[in-house]
């Protein structure tokens, strides 16, 4: 049986029999519950490719909304050979895995320095990544036993950032940029990366990471940084990246 599954490039959802194509879904329509509402739910199901569709549950939620549960056979096929997976360049680690990896590769705490630079006073981004409170249900980097976080806060001057990086022997410098007026985020980032290149030999320079909602994640070379994170990045992604990148750096030597 396993052989046929591997060879079978076309699959359908599985309810209780191979090939039955059965799925379930639930949704709400902004209409009062009556016969017409139920008809509307079946129309939506049909347009989504359910044929036949069974309306198994409909319930009024207040005077203006109706909630539906629908079961049905989807007419769509899934072509496994056409599935595209976007590979992240690093594996996602849990905090525990990240801590263990740091212990193994660094044999000391990983030091992360964070700041908003320039006139930017929006620390929401850097705080979401660093504060233990975290973001999107994930704890911030402070939560990681093996990461030492130094958060310099807002409106940090680039020379101060470099000095702090030296004083703390930072492994990575995280900079958040929210304000994009006249491309301030790009200018600030270039100024920052240039300052680090000037004051560190290239093999000793900390990882430079910037984040913010308006960055192009592929622009690392132009901005002189190691990694760019965009909107919606979680602390776990940043931690996983840092572990991966630092391990890779050490590997050649």
């Amino acid at each position: 049986m396993t052989g046929t599954v591997a060879e079978n490039r076309i699959v359908r959802p599985y309810g209780d029999t191979t090939g039955d194509g059965m799925v379930q879904m639930s949704f709400t329509l902004p209409v009062p519950h009556d016969k017409r509402a139920e008809g509307a739910a079946l129309q939506l199901a049909a347009k989504m490719g359910l044929d036949p569709a069974m309306l198994v549950h409909a319930k009024a939620m207040g005077p203006d909304f109706t909630f539906f549960v629908v079961y049905g056979r989807v007419t769509h096929l899934v072509d496994l050979s056409a599935v595209q997976v976007h590979e992240r360049e690093y594996p996602l680690l849990s905090p525990k895995e990240a801590n263990n990896a740091i212990k193994r590769t660094l044999r000391r705490k990983l030091v992360v320095l964070g700041a908003c630079i320039g006139t930017d006073a929006h620390t929401v981004g850097i705080d979401a990544i660093l504060n233990i409170k975290g973001f999107a249900g994930e704890k911030g980097l402070e939560y990681y036993r093996e990461i030492k976080v130094v958060n310099l806060g807002a409106q940090v001057l680039v020379p101060d950032l470099v000095a702090a990086s030296r004083a703390e022997k930072a492994d990575a410098v995280l900079v958040s940029q929210v304000v994009t007026q006249r491309d301030a985020h790009l200018r600030n980032t270039r100024e920052m990366s240039a300052a680090f290149r000037e004051s560190y030999p290239s093999d000793k320079r900390p990882l430079l990471v910037v984040g913010g909602p308006r960055f192009d994640e592929t622009a690392t070379v132009g901005l002189g940084v190691d990694r760019i994170f965009g909107r919606g990045t979680t602390p776990g992604e940043v931690a996983s990246y840092l572990v991966h990148a630092l391990a890779e750096r050490r590997a050649p030597s």
Binding site: S26, F27, T28, K59, M61, F65, F67, A136, G137
Partner: peptide
């Protein structure tokens, strides 16, 4: 929780 901001239906359920 931890998926989306609750739908109207999530709250009702």
């Amino acid at each position: 929780e931890a998926v989306v901001t609750p739908f109207l239906s999530d709250r009702d359920l």
